[in-house]
Design a binder for these strands. Sequence first.
DNA 1: ATTATCTATAGATCTATAGATAATGC
DNA 2: ATTATCTATAGATCTATAGATAATGC
Lengths: 210, 210
Amino acid sequence: MAKRSDGIETKKKILGAAAKLFSENGFKQTSNADISKASGVNSALISYYFGDKETIYREAWQHSLRESLAKYPPDGGVPATAPARKRLYGIISATVRRYSDHRHCFDGGILNQEIASPTGLLDDVHENTIFSLRENLLRVVSEFLGDGISNEDLRMSVYSIVAMCISPQKKIQRIEKTEPFPYDVEKRIEHVFRFSVAGLNAVKRASRKN
Amino acid sequence: MAKRSDGIETKKKILGAAAKLFSENGFKQTSNADISKASGVNSALISYYFGDKETIYREAWQHSLRESLAKYPPDGGVPATAPARKRLYGIISATVRRYSDHRHCFDGGILNQEIASPTGLLDDVHENTIFSLRENLLRVVSEFLGDGISNEDLRMSVYSIVAMCISPQKKIQRIEKTEPFPYDVEKRIEHVFRFSVAGLNAVKRASRKN
DNA sequence: ATTATCTATAGATCTATAGATAATGC
DNA sequence: ATTATCTATAGATCTATAGATAATGC
C-alpha cells in the first residue's frame, strides 16, 4: 500500500473541501479551482481521482451524509420502542443538530442547495437515504396523530416540522441583516419540539371536530 | 417615444424571463443565453439594456418583488387595527400565497436562492423591503405573545412561522420522489396558521411557567 | 515499475462589446 | 437622425486531459 501520500488522504482532502464548498455555494458556483485552493490539492488531481465534477459532487454528498448520520443517528438515540412523542423528539433533535453543525455536517447544506436548484445528480442516492428518513418521520407523526387523520393533514404536518428543523437560520439572518442573536441549538430543539407538539395536537383537535 | 417596438416591451420580456430563471436556477446557473432563449430576445440586447448581469439580477428581483407585493399585499388585507391573531393570519396568508404562486411571483424563489448561496447583490434592496416585512411580523407575534416573553423566544417563533410559510414544498417533493399529493394553498394556509397559533400559545405557556 | 503529483493547455462556455443593419420619428 | 436589434467575436473562466516529473514499493 502507501505510496507518496497514498492518495487516500488526498481524496479525503478533496471530498472534505468539496462538500463544504458545495454546501455553501452549490454545484455550479463551485469550481475545481475553488476546491483545489480550499483543499490545497492540485486541481488536476480532482479529475484524476474523480473523473468529472459530477462524480465529486455525488461522492462528496454521500461522504458527508454518511459522516453526518454517524455523528447524529437519525433517531436521536431514542429506541424504536419508545412512545411516538419521544421518538419525535429524537428525530427533531437529530435533524436540527445535523443541519446546524456547519463545522462537521455538509449534507444538509448540499440538500438545501439541491432543493433551491436541482441538478438531479443526487436522485438515485436520495431514494435510498433521504426518502427513508422521511418515511420514518411520517410513521412517527402518523402514530402521534392517531387514526382518523387525513393523508393531507399528515403530510402537511410533516412538512411543517421538517421546515422548522432545516430552515437555515444563520443564512437567513445574514441576508436580513437583523442583529444576529446567538443561535443556541439546544434551545432551538426545545422550541421546535414545543411548536411541533402543540401544532400536531391542534391538527388532531381540528380533525376530530369534522 | 416609441421606436420599433419601443424597447420597453423588450426590457419587460427580459426581466420576466430572467426573474423566472433566476428563481428556478439561481444567479450563476442562469446565463444570458438562457434568458435570451426564454424571452425570445437577442442575447446582445440584455447587455445593451442592463449593462451587466448583476444589474439584470437586481432589477429582476425588484421588479418581481414589486409585482408580488402588489398582487399579495403583505398584510393579507387585514387592517392594522385588527387584533394580533387576525393580523397574523393575514401575514401568513399573504406569505404562503406569494411563495406558492410560481406562475406569477418569482421574488420568493430568488430569495430562497439567495439564502442558499448569497451573491450579496441584493443586500441594499433587502434592507428596504424584506427587513421591514420581517419587522412587521415580529411586531404582530410580539403582540400575540404579550409581555414577559424573552427576545429569544420571540425570534425563534418568528423563524418557525416564516420557515413554514416559505418552505418550498413542491421542490422538496420533487427531490424526495414522494408520491406528489395535490398542493392546496388554502389548506396550507389554514394548516400553517393552526400550527403557528398552537405553537405560539405553547411558547406563551412555557414562558409563564418559569 | 508504479502511480501520485504537477505543468500546460485544448476546447467549451459565458459575458460583454464593437460594429453593422434596419426600423421608426422628424 | 436616432436607436432598437442583430452578427461576430475578444477575453475571461472553467473542465478535463495529455504529458512530464518525482516519490515510493519491489
